[in-house]
Amino acid sequence: MANDILKLIGLRIRELRKESGLSQEQLGEIVGFHYTYIGAIERAEKNISILNLEKIASALKVGVYELFVYARQKHKQKDKSKDIDKILELLHSLSTDDVKKAKNILSEMFS
């Protein structure tokens, strides 16, 4: 169980680092850590301190809380966005009257 949180945080750090276009060595230089330490964190081989989490978050230009927003939540958001896009595509293909009907149905269902 404890190792699971290390894996999730390590994966999240790797994800944010790559999104920032940084290598492990570059991130390490910014934060003042050796790149092997960054790699060990990403592979869940090191139990990182809160102070070091803050340094990494700062270097990645995110809040510390962002390190705890795991991939599962991110994928759920992507799925939701895809569903909304599909709904919008469908609505755009409908006549004006049918769009109004759909609006009324959704209003009744979720109000």
Rank of each mutant, 00 (worst) to 15 (best):
I5A: 03
D4G: 05
K86C: 12
I30K: 13
K80W: 02
V69F: 07
S111N: 04
I13L: 02
V64W: 01
A44G: 04
G21W: 07
S93Y: 06
M109R: 10
V62W: 07
G10Y: 01
S95A: 08
H34N: 12
I30R: 06
G39V: 08
V99W: 03
K7E: 07
D85E: 12
D4W: 07
G28N: 02
I105T: 11
K46T: 09
D79H: 13
Y35W: 11
R12M: 03
N104C: 10
S23D: 04
A2V: 15
I56N: 02
L91H: 14
I50D: 07
Y35S: 11
L53P: 05
L11K: 10
K7Q: 13
R43G: 00
R17I: 00
L88Y: 14
G63W: 08
H92P: 08
E54P: 11
D97A: 12
L22H: 00
I38D: 13
K76H: 12
D85C: 04
L51R: 15
H34R: 11
K55N: 12
K78N: 05
F68A: 00
L88G: 00
D83Y: 14
L88Q: 09
L91R: 14
E89Q: 13
L60T: 11
D83K: 14
R72V: 15
G10D: 02
S81V: 14
T96C: 14
K76I: 07
S20F: 03
D97T: 09
L11H: 15
I38L: 10
K74D: 09
L53H: 00
K100Q: 15
T36M: 05
S49P: 02
E89W: 03
R12T: 03
T96I: 13
S93R: 05
G39D: 05
V31E: 03
K55P: 03
G32Y: 09
K61V: 11
